[in-house]
């Protein structure tokens, strides 16, 4: 969980007018998210998004995904993996440990991302990491009709899950995943509602392996 990383960055950059807003995509709400938030004790807003509303508004398909928003409320970098990369796929899946080269690669990647944020906070629109309106629009992921339908199926799945109809919920979650297979949010949330250990269990790794050469986290551009 990255909440302590954002806390450290907040402490460092708060005097320069920077704030993280962390949003937990957790249909089970505070029950699922509380222990992580308490452990991180964040001073920045750490919000709970039971309906994955922010995922829909910003067309996010995975966690952690971050969007940079400037002082005027304009998007200067659309959703992208927040300092994470596919090196995690080479971790030891039984022991849940990172070989040293994997750990080093993940750390280097995260540090480059944090440095990019520092650069943006220091230089604003002049930062090489702040995209022009044209670049940001071109890079923006937007939903098509099938993907909008996927989100509606996901909402219906959550509705049935909350009312104690897990089998019916599963049917709509499955349809959401069929319509938007690239949404790891849909897949993993549905697994987690069935059994919290499932979202990072054998089903997860088998789905990651099925990607083959395709990425789980698209590589960051220009960072």
């Amino acid at each position: 969980m990255d909440l302590p990383v954002w806390q450290a960055l907040y402490q460092e950059l708060k005097p320069r007018g920077f704030v993280p807003i962390a949003v937990a995509f957790d249909s089970a709400g505070a029950r699922a998210a509380a222990q992580w938030i308490r452990a991180a004790n964040p001073a920045y807003p750490c919000l709970i998004d039971r309906r994955h509303l922010v995922a829909e508004l910003y067309d996010m398909v995975n966690v952690p995904t971050a969007v940079w928003i400037d002082e005027q409320g304009r998007i200067v970098r659309p959703g992208e993996p927040a300092g994470v990369c596919d090196a995690f796929r080479r971790m030891n899946r039984e022991a849940l440990t990172m070989p040293p080269d994997v750990a080093a690669e993940l750390m280097a990647h995260r540090n480059a991302y944090l440095d990019a944020i520092r650069d943006w906070v220091a230089n604003g629109a002049a930062s090489r990491y702040a995209l022009s309106a044209d670049q940001a629009t071109r890079r923006m992921s937007t939903p098509d009709d099938a993907q909008a339908r996927a989100a509606a199926n996901f909402a219906l799945g959550e509705y049935f899950h909350e009312r104690g109809h897990p089998r019916c919920a599963r049917r709509y979650f499955d349809e959401a995943v069929r319509l938007r297979p690239e949404s790891w949010n849909f897949r993993r949330q549905a697994w987690a509602l069935e059994d919290p250990s499932k979202a990072a269990g054998p089903e997860f790794w088998s789905a990651v392996d099925e990607l083959g050469p395709r990425s789980y986290y698209p590589p960051l551009q220009d960072i």
């Binding site: 949003v23 750490c46 952690p64």
Partner: peptide, 25 residues
């Protein structure tokens, strides 16, 4: 947030915001 206090993105106008998702799963 965890205590039930409501927060809006709009309240942060005037700051640079990193809007970042995560999940317990």
């Amino acid at each position: 947030d965890l205590r039930g206090r409501m927060h809006s993105l709009g309240e942060q106008r005037g700051k640079k915001v990193l809007l970042v998702s995560w999940a317990s799963w």
